[in-house]
């Protein structure tokens, strides 16, 4: 998920930074005071999720949790993910500083889309299904965006997209299952988060 420095072309990097800045500005505007501690906890979850890491075929994958963040916070996913990504880049050398904008966009935009699409369904389908859909579709969307950024930087789209999809489908299933557990857990322990946060905007 984290694209390294030196892979992408300059226009892609610039567009990524610009769009991430806009997304973060919108997210900060939408961030309500009552949400701040919750946003901090989700940011911390995202920060450590990438340390949980599975060998998978020739490569290896890690959890992302962007689906959960999008479902619970919507646009606020942008600042939440950006902060965690900065710290991952600084502490763990995941991704890089220049490529931060693109990485943030690739992970936060799917989160926002999922928030917009799945929030209206939250009372119609069970939390288990809701969680699975959020977790897995976030990974698929992020994989698509990663392929797209690599393609726009000169990689052959079909081979890259294939690689990303093959690598990400099992991860999407795994992330879906974990997100499903998390949403069920939140629904039990703190249902007002699922409803209340969504209620505000």
């Amino acid at each position: 998920m984290h694209i390294a420095d030196g892979v992408l072309s300059t226009p892609v990097l610039v567009v990524g930074i610009a769009l991430s800045a806009i997304g973060t500005a919108i997210g900060l505007r939408k961030l309500q005071d009552a949400q701040i501690p919750f946003a901090a906890v989700l940011s911390a979850c995202f920060f450590v999720a990438s340390l949980i890491h599975f060998p998978l075929g020739p490569s290896s994958v890690h959890l992302v949790f962007s689906g959960i963040i999008g479902l619970l916070l919507g646009w606020v996913a942008f600042p939440v993910i950006l902060i965690a990504l900065i710290l991952q880049a600084v502490f763990f050398s995941f991704g890089g500083i220049v490529v931060l904008g693109v990485n943030c966009l690739n992970m936060a935009l799917p989160a926002v889309v999922i928030g917009l699409l799945l929030r209206p369904l939250r009372n119609k389908i069970s939390p288990r299904v809701l969680g699975f859909l959020a977790g897995s579709s976030a990974i698929v969307l992020t994989g698509t965006l990663v392929s797209l950024s690599l393609y726009l930087s000169g990689d052959a789209f079909v081979s890259t997209a294939n690689a990303v999809f093959i690598a990400n489908l099992p991860l999407a299933a795994l992330e879906g299952i974990i997100a499903s557990f998390v949403i069920v857990f939140i629904n039990k322990v703190k249902p007002e988060v699922l409803n209340g946060v969504q209620h505000h905007d």
Binding site: C45, L51, I52, H62, F92
Partner: peptide
């Protein structure tokens, strides 16, 4: 919440993606 966060931390703290 704390246990959720901690369980996430504890699963495999030494693995990373780089």
């Amino acid at each position: 919440w704390l246990s959720l966060l901690l369980s996430v931390c504890m699963i495999n703290p030494c693995y990373a993606h780089r």
